[in-house]
Amino acid sequence: MTMLWLSIGTLLLLALWFLSLPLRRARAIHDWQQRFEADDHAEAQNLAVYERRLSALERARDRGEIDVARFEESRHELDRNLLEDTEARRRMPLRRPVSGRLMIPLVITAVIGASIIGYRWQGADGDLALYAAQQNALNTPGASMKTLVGRLEEEAGTQPDNPKVWSLLFPLYQKIGQPGQAIGALERLIELEGRRVDLLAQLAQIKFFVAGRSLTTEVQALIDEILDKDPREPTVLGILGVEAFDDGRYEQAINYWRRALAGFGDNESAQAMRNGIAVARQRLEETANGAERVTD
């Protein structure tokens, strides 16, 4: 956490340095603009051009090349062009170089406030606290799995709406032999994350084994919901295979487990399915041989 806040502080200082840059450069820009305007002779050049053209018109009138009406019309046009050029080049007076300096601290305060509020709102402050709790428990001398569970339970009390807390807790409850707490943590996770198929499948699996590998009404309802959403969900197919195997329906168990094999991504689960299929086939052969001996 300390490194995070140091990083945030460093980035804020860098941002504030850039925000204050215009104020620090204001004096140099002001002086440059003043020199530029002092050296700008465009208005004098426009006036000189106006006077030359007016003189040319007066000479043409005196020689009789244009009449008085034409002269007045041309002179008015020259006057209008001069006024338009002068208006277009009119500059606003330069402000003092320190003008607007109070906006800089206001902007800086707004940036700092927005950064802190934005991080508190969208940041991963809770996840960082959770990670710190994990590391603290794991690095404690003589720490056990129950020590880690205890620290995570404290975090669950502090941030009960953080799904990552519950996703860490429920498998740990299973490992330390507390299936009831595992079910409660998983159900809380489902409340936060929605009825995702993978979470429902894990809930069905825990409840299936807690019920002594029996398809209770509650477990069957979960399985029906899962298969309605994903008929190839491997965990549920594995459960159905176990139930069929226990009931002596070895061929049906093999069918469930073969379908489940296609969905398992980890080798350990896939190997467990293969071992189950091998045992089910052996039981089928033993059953068939026993039937033949009875027939003979």
Results as ranks from 00 to 15, higher is better:
L4R: 13
L4M: 12
W5Y: 14
L6E: 06
I8S: 11
G9L: 13
L11M: 12
L13W: 06
F18E: 05
L23M: 14
R24G: 14
R25N: 12
R27W: 15
H30A: 11
E43C: 02
N46K: 06
E51Q: 14
R52T: 11
R53D: 13
L54H: 12
A56I: 08
A60L: 02
R63W: 04
V68Y: 10
R70W: 05
N81C: 02
L83N: 01
R95C: 08
R95F: 11
L102A: 15
M103N: 13
V107P: 00
A110V: 15
I116A: 15
Q122I: 04
G123C: 07
D127R: 06
Y131R: 08
Y131D: 11
A133R: 04
Q134T: 09
T140P: 00
T140R: 15
T147P: 12
E154V: 14
E154H: 12
D161V: 03
K164D: 08
W166H: 12
P171L: 05
Y173G: 11
Q178V: 07
G184S: 14
L189R: 07
I190E: 02
I190Y: 03
I190P: 01
E191P: 03
L192P: 15
R195G: 00
Q205N: 14
Q205H: 13
G212L: 00
S214A: 02
E218Y: 07
A221E: 09
D224K: 05
K229R: 13
G238I: 02
A244S: 15
Y250G: 00
Y256C: 08
R259P: 00
A262N: 05
D266E: 10
D266T: 11
D266S: 10
A270Y: 09
M273E: 04
R274K: 09
G276E: 05
L284R: 09
A288R: 14
A291S: 13
E292M: 05
E292G: 00
R293D: 09
V294M: 09
